[in-house]
């Protein structure tokens, strides 16, 4: 499987002319079929579709309960063309651990064909960073040969836009609503990629469907790791974010260009931005003004948001510039 080397460009905001045609080079096979019941303009469904293309056929998927499970497998139909299992909400990483162990031992014992099949566990933000965090931590710590991809649409969308620990500061959700006495969600988004780095996972990355080639390259890289890998993919949810479906891709791009959701990877401990560092981050308001969930915010809250984004971005850049890889540290 070849890895495409094109990278999106911060400066132009969109893909450069060369990148424009990169999409034509991807696997044309659709492993996530038409007829799924995701909302119009669902970024998560798009991200799943792209992930499957990057993974290819030799893959088994373990899916947590959530939007993507509900919209894809209404008995007697399935949108999946890859082998797929769903058990419950908090346990995709644990089910994936079992799938990985099962495939390994069955291959060793000659009960299935003697070739490598990748196990991939997937979940939404709720199923990953909240209720599934323990199972994820266990699976990553045990070192299963498994990729976990979190599709983060920043709230419990499947149950009606309740706040999760991945919900950004200030977003109005149904359980952290904006009101006379509340700015909406009061906490800063939990940094789960960083928690995965702390598990000594050899490959951790952030991604977004708005940068499809970057995302797919990361999936391919993670797939090639013989061990645990984690990708945190921002997935725009027009329904929950109260945005227009046509703006799905644009919103993902703005999340990156404002520095709210930087795209980076951590390979054997080494941090690297996977898009060029912009001269200057765009103001967060460019991103916020397109979404109903932030509409209530006043100057003060937006000011706090901007300052915190600047700080978090600086923290990341500090890691990018200072931290050496494990190999370098070993000398």
């Amino acid at each position: 499987m070849s890895t495409l080397t094109v990278t999106p460009n911060y400066a132009t905001g969109v893909v450069s002319n060369f990148d424009l045609f990169a999409g034509k080079l991807v696997d044309r096979e659709e492993y996530f079929s038409c007829g799924h019941r995701a909302c119009q303009g669902c970024g998560e469904a798009l991200a799943i579709r792209l992930m499957c293309k990057a993974l290819g056929k030799e893959t088994v998927i373990a899916n947590a309960t959530g939007c993507m499970e509900v919209i894809s497998t209404l008995y007697p139909t399935t949108a999946w063309k890859l082998p797929w299992i769903h058990v419950a909400f908090p346990n995709a990483a644990a089910v994936g651990s079992g799938v990985e162990a099962g495939l390994k031992v069955m291959r060793r014992k000659g009960r299935i064909p003697d070739r490598y099949v990748k196990t991939v566990a997937i979940g939404g933000d709720g199923g990953t960073v909240d209720i599934g965090l323990q199972a994820l931590s266990g699976a990553m710590e045990r070192g299963h040969d498994m990729l976990y991809v979190c599709f983060d649409n920043e709230a419990y969308m499947n149950t009606g836009i309740q706040r999760s620990s991945a919900t950004p500061f200030g977003a109005s959700t149904t359980t952290a609503p904006a009101g006379a006495a509340s700015p909406g969600n009061r906490t800063w988004k939990k940094n789960v990629p960083e928690i995965m780095v702390a598990h000594n996972v050899p490959y951790v990355a952030t991604a977004c469907h708005s940068y499809p080639i970057d995302f797919m390259n990361k999936v391919k890289k993670a797939r090639a790791v013989k061990g645990p890998a984690y990708i945190h993919c921002l997935a725009v949810c027009p329904t929950g974010w109260r945005a227009e479906s046509k703006d799905c891709i644009k919103l993902g791009r703005l999340a990156v260009e404002t520095g709210i959701f930087p795209l980076y990877e951590v390979e054997n401990g080494k941090y690297r931005l996977t898009v060029e560092k912009p001269e200057k981050l765009r103001p967060v308001t460019d991103y916020m003004k397109m979404q109903g969930r932030f509409r209530h915010l006043g100057k003060e809250e937006i000011g706090y948001f901007q300052d915190r984004v600047n700080l978090e971005f600086a923290k990341l850049m500090n890691k990018v510039e200072c931290i050496e890889s494990w190999d370098e540290l070993k000398g």
Binding site: I85, V95, S97, A101, G102, V105, I112, Q134, A135, S137
Partner: peptide
Amino acid sequence: IDAEYITVESEHSALSAVMGASGTGART
């Protein structure tokens, strides 16, 4: 015996993991 033993972090994951493995056709 030739088997995989998963030292899970909870019973919730213990059953989840054997279900995943059973899904691949393993005896669990």
